[in-house]
Design a binder for these strands. Structure first.
Lengths: 219, 219
DNA sequence: ATACATAATTAGGCTCACCTAATTATATTT
DNA sequence: AAATATAATTAGGTGAGCCTAATTATGTAT
């Protein structure tokens, strides 16, 4: 029904919309998919005819309900596979993205439902990203960037806002792992760097760039 | 490196060669891949240039060492995924083929090695087909069709020579499962039907068509 | 050896998903 | 408002992997 290319477009549109809101521009899509803008214009016209997206010429695209349903399904598949790769196959959180990018395109609803069950219906993937259910619905999420916290806040590290390998590896190296308790000891007003105590043990200085990308839930 | 289409051709050539020996004809490939003979001729010429196969015009093709290595790798992936689907996700042996056909094309050696480890380095898939190791080598296999047995033989059911869903479902329905002990009670000379005792319990009459496709190891 | 049937190849064409170069539309600056 | 920069579209084209119809090669029966 939906081709590999269509799935990739739908996922990219969903993610760009999530990140920047409103309509997704041709160039943003081209950039994200590493494809020329001309090719994108071509392709989105066809997707619009198929009612996967709504396309306003020279303005950009948004997902239709049908397109959004498919996009959420792909994201669901991707994140479930990531959980499996980490918890069953022993991969690290910075090693699973490329493999899950391939696995997400395997078409079998039965497979995904069985996988979900096998994993114990996880709510989030190894990076803390929520996993939509079979109907495309997410659990409630009260996390926010650590940057928005104040001195004295005691929080739980539940996710990342930046998924680059270098950031994930920095956290691993710094011994900061999903689920850790973080206590904001002091915040340096000048550069917004945070002195944070991790799991009531070691204390560490984190730059603004880092705390911006750590998602936490206040306890 | 190798495309989806190339992988499917290599696998088909390997299987046809295994089944009928010698060179694989254009029409056999066309039939197996559900593609026109003209398309096959086209494609195998390109594969020959890439040294994946050796092609004698109007005679047929055989795999080169390189092609055989890739084919065995695909078969390895396919069978490991089938083991996983049955033993971890709870699928039945007649439900896994189509899903494994998709999973086998996911490219990541690391993934397959971890999967193999996770499954405990299985020697065979849910149909009893041997799984080649990472170097394309198979374990020794002393199985033969039950049809070649004689009255009084006590054997272990280790595999099937026919993979159709209808045959697999017939066996399931008849309560004949991989690993079962079979005792050949009598063989009807007229139609080569076998009266067989399963796991020292129930006795059952199996047609020649069935015993031909049951692979067993004499105990 | 000839005729016939079957198998394989060649010729020409199609769709999908991409490309570059040229053109047009939109947004920003002066 | 005009000039300029940036973004988007159109036009024309490519390779991969398929197709049908026509042709040629191979194998079999007479």
């Amino acid at each position: 029904m939906t081709s590999l290319a269509e799935e990739n477009y739908l996922k990219a549109i969903y993610k760009l919309h999530e990140k920047h809101g409103s309509m997704v521009s041709t160039s943003a899509l081209a950039d994200s998919l590493q494809i020329s803008a001309a090719s994108v214009t071509d392709f989105i016209k066809k997707m619009a005819i198929k009612k996967l997206i709504s396309y306003k010429k020279s303005k950009g695209v948004t997902l239709t309900d049908q397109g959004k349903t498919i996009a959420l399904n792909i994201i669901r598949r991707h994140r479930l596979w990531e959980v499996w790769l980490v918890s069953n196959l022993g991969f690290k959180w910075d090693e699973v993205h490329e493999i899950a990018e391939q696995l997400e395109h395997v078409m079998s609803d039965e497979l995904i439902e069985q996988l979900d069950k096998h994993l114990g219906y996880p709510k989030a993937d190894p990076h803390g990203d929520l996993i939509p259910d079979a109907n495309g619905r997410f659990a409630k999420n009260s996390s926010k960037p650590l940057l928005e916290c104040v001195e004295g806040d005691k929080v739980k590290f539940t996710g990342v806002a930046e998924h680059s390998n270098s950031f994930l590896q920095y956290l691993t190296k710094s011994n900061i792992n999903l689920g850790d308790e973080l206590l904001v000891e002091t915040i340096e007003d000048f550069d917004k760097s945070f002195q944070v105590k991790i799991n009531k043990k070691t204390s560490r200085l984190l730059s603004k760039e880092v705390v911006k990308n750590l998602l936490v839930v206040v306890q």
